[in-house]
Design a protein around this nucleic acid. Structure first.
Length: 234
DNA sequence: GCGACAG
DNA sequence: ATCTTGTCGC
């Protein structure tokens, strides 16, 4: 199904689609070398249905900037816990198609398989584009875990009925942990290792941290240009 | 019925 | 996610 059609799905239909896609998920080691990595994120105004999507690509593991792409899209699918992909993936897909050179790996702001149906936004996007993905969320959605020690890089496994679905990682001392889980076409261990390599002094790993910065920037800029276009200062 | 609940 | 200044703590 083309993501442009997501907005016409009912929540029940979206859940049915997740159950259908989950059978295709591949959590296994990525054997091809990782030479480039990208971060993706979304931004929007409080009561607006316009989404600002952005992707930032870096050379890995140096993390030097290679390129960026953005897309401004409309959505009508509401935010529903567990169905985030249906709201944000269409916009991200547009930004993805604007990228000249696709990265070897993509980090999304949200869960991978640490989801009740293993279909977090990172997994969903990976299945859609066939690019290896990792989910790096700022808060927990699903899974049980013990609080990791308050020491940089301390980690604790996240489980769902005995199954390992993610890792709570203390990316920085005295900061709340981030929740890492593989999205598609990469292993749990590799996901955690890669994210650790992307931590550069902040709680949020560089790929999504920079993507967040980018989408906020274009959101503010777009708002200002519209104000001018409407001639509110005339 | 109650609590949880990515962005 | 976004609205927003100061403020507590390392």
């Amino acid at each position: 199904m083309d993501p442009s059609g997501y907005e016409h799905l009912s929540p029940a239909e979206a859940i049915a689609y997740q159950e259908e896609l989950r059978h295709k998920i591949q959590i296994q080691e990525l054997t091809t070398p990782i030479k480039t990595i990208a971060g993706a994120d979304i931004s929007f105004d409080k009561d607006s249905d316009i989404l600002y999507a952005g992707i930032v690509v870096f050379k890995y593991p140096e993390m030097t900037l290679i390129g960026t792409s953005t897309a401004i899209s409309h959505t009508s699918f509401p935010y529903i816990s567990g169905l985030l992909a249906f709201r944000e993936v269409p916009a991200l897909f547009n930004a993805w198609n604007n990228l000249y050179t696709k990265p070897d790996l993509l980090v999304l702001d949200g869960q991978g398989i640490a989801h009740e149906r293993r279909m977090g936004i990172a997994t969903h996007f990976g299945l859609l584009t066939n690019v290896p993905t990792i989910g790096s969320a700022k808060s927990r959605l699903y899974g049980k875990f013990e609080e990791p020690a308050d020491k940089a890089f301390a980690q604790s496994p996240m489980y769902d009925k005995g199954e390992l679905i993610g890792v709570a990682l203390r990316s920085k001392e005295h900061c709340n942990p981030i929740y890492i889980s593989p999205g598609h076409n990469i292993s749990m261990q590799q996901s955690v290792d890669v994210i650790k390599n992307c931590i550069r002094g902040y709680r949020i790993p560089e790929p999504t941290r920079q993507a967040h910065y980018l989408v906020n920037k274009i959101r503010i800029e777009n708002g200002e240009s519209k104000t001018k276009q409407l001639g509110l200062f005339d």
